[in-house]
């Protein structure tokens, strides 16, 4: 049953990305291009997504999820090197290509070989990340 819900969630997520134009890399790069022909669409997408989700977070208070025992506990509000460095690297790749993980998968069927290559490279990056993380952590300990 959880998988059926997950499939529907994925389908809505994918349709939302397509409808909003976020599978079009030029719209994402247009948002990041503040010195060029700036395209504010992404702000509307973010706003439209954050509103129902903010309502959902309010509903969670004092309740339990329908098909699970508990809601995810908030992570410790710690701002480590991994968060800052990781987000910076991600932003660089996002700016270069105009793709982030969700839209990369959502556009796989019509994105051609370029889209496939991006997703394969992203998968390799995800496999490398844990090794890089433990290296960074060791360095921090040594300092």
């Amino acid at each position: 049953m959880r998988s059926v819900v997950a499939f529907i969630v994925g389908a809505l997520f994918g349709l939302g990305l397509l409808v909003s134009g976020m599978t079009d890399t030029t719209k994402v790069q247009g948002w990041l291009d503040i010195f060029g022909d700036w395209d504010p669409t992404l702000a509307f997408v973010m706003g439209g997504a954050i509103i129902p989700m903010a309502v959902a977070w309010r509903i969670t208070v004092g309740r339990k999820p329908v098909l699970a025992s508990a809601f995810p506990t908030p992570p410790e509000p710690k701002l480590g090197r991994n968060l800052v460095l990781g987000s910076t690297l991600f932003g660089m790749g996002w700016g270069l290509s105009g793709l982030c993980p969700g839209p990369a998968v959502a556009s796989l069927s019509f994105g051609g070989w370029g889209g496939v290559t991006f997703v394969v490279s992203m998968g390799i990056g995800m496999l490398i990340a844990p090794a890089l993380r433990s290296r960074l952590d060791r360095k921090t300990l040594a300092v």
């Binding site: 991994n82 990781g86 987000s87 790749g93 290509s97």
Partner: peptide, 13 residues
Amino acid sequence: AGLLVGVGTRLAN
């Protein structure tokens, strides 16, 4: 870009 997005998002969780 794919490598950067993969590494970066996993580092940043």
